[in-house]
């Protein structure tokens, strides 16, 4: 393998990893605050691409207006899912919550099939992003550079929000202890709702860029990325935002490199993430950055 080719794979891996990281953050934040795998997260990501499609293709809104609109709509959708499917089950056993999450996920998928049809649609990527540039002997889409940049900007914003603002402080408090946070005067429901909105917002950022990178959208496109990003969050240590980013990059780069170096295993690409997950869970169940916790009686 030549250096050029390797660099091309690496840049692909980094941009895929950035996308995984953006979606994984949504999982990790929700898990941190509710101890719940938000199975619907992958479908919220899918809905974001459909919103963008309808904005640009159906309503002919220019992309620079559509994209911010999509981010807001998706955040609203995430909050809506939380209100309908998770809020009534705050006091219920964990399994009920998990089943409700799976139900919400399938509901969104099937609703999309009914409303928009199961046939894949082309994602209307603006020309600005899909242009190809020559770097030495390698030709790379401009998008491949934009994705990590946007991801870094989004991450810096998120870090600021969580560490420096009052809302972020409330989120951290709720994720530590619901009861104590409530006693301190934090509105639990509003904080959880905000967390869902924030996670969905980032998923929408990821979704738009995903749509431009892999310009074909369909109702079940969120399932596999959703599972993989959850795995990324577990690998990094669930509940830990830095961990989700690391996990996303490990998964993205690892996957691309697996296909690049061992083309025979291309068919097993989707299994790679699961194998990695099981290896991690067996050796270090709390993930790379996760802290060890013991169950108290």
């Amino acid at each position: 393998m030549t250096l050029d080719l390797f660099l091309q794979h690496l840049s692909n891996g980094i941009s895929l990893g950035s996308l995984y990281a953006l979606i994984a953050i949504g999982y990790t934040m929700v898990y941190g605050i509710l101890r719940l795998i938000n199975f619907a997260h992958g479908d919220i990501f899918m809905m974001a691409t459909y919103f963008a499609f309808f904005g640009i293709v159906t309503f002919r809104i220019p992309w620079f207006i559509t994209f911010p609109l999509v981010l807001v709509l998706t955040a609203g959708l995430g909050m809506g899912v939380e209100t309908v499917a998770y809020r009534p089950l705050r006091e219920a056993p964990k399994i009920s919550l998990l089943i409700s999450a799976i139900g919400a996920s399938f509901f969104l998928e099937n609703l999309t099939i009914v409303l928009f049809g199961g046939v894949p649609k082309p994602f209307p990527a603006p020309k600005l992003f899909t242009d190809v540039v020559q770097v030495g002997a390698v030709s790379i889409q401009k998008l491949t550079f934009y994705i990590p940049i946007v991801t870094v900007i989004a991450l810096l914003g998120l870090m600021y929000l969580i560490n420096k603002t009052k809302t972020g402080m409330a989120m951290r408090a709720v994720s530590m202890d619901h009861e104590t946070a409530r006693v301190m005067g934090i509105n639990i429901n509003r904080t959880i709702s905000f967390t869902f909105g924030l996670g969905s917002f980032l998923a929408a950022v990821g979704g738009i860029m995903w749509g431009m990178k892999f310009p074909q959208i369909q109702p079940l496109m969120g399932v596999i990325p959703g599972l993989k990003c959850f795995i990324a969050a577990v690998i990094g240590g669930i509940g830990n935002i830095g961990g989700a980013v690391i996990g996303g990059f490990i998964l993205g780069i690892g996957e691309i490199m697996l296909v690049a170096f061992l083309p025979d295993l291309t068919g097993y690409r989707d299994a790679f993430a699961f194998v990695l997950l099981i290896l991690i869970l067996m050796s270090k169940p709390t993930g790379i950055l996760g802290e060890k916790t013991a169950e108290k009686v």
Binding site: A85, P88, L89, S96, I99, S100, I102, G103, A104, F106, F107, E109, N110, L111, I113, V114, G118
Partner: peptide, 16 residues
């Protein structure tokens, strides 16, 4: 696909 919508809604309804 309408059937699947009804089914997933049923599951959520039962759980909720």
């Amino acid at each position: 696909g309408m059937r699947s919508v009804v089914f997933s809604a049923t599951l959520m309804f039962v759980v909720l």
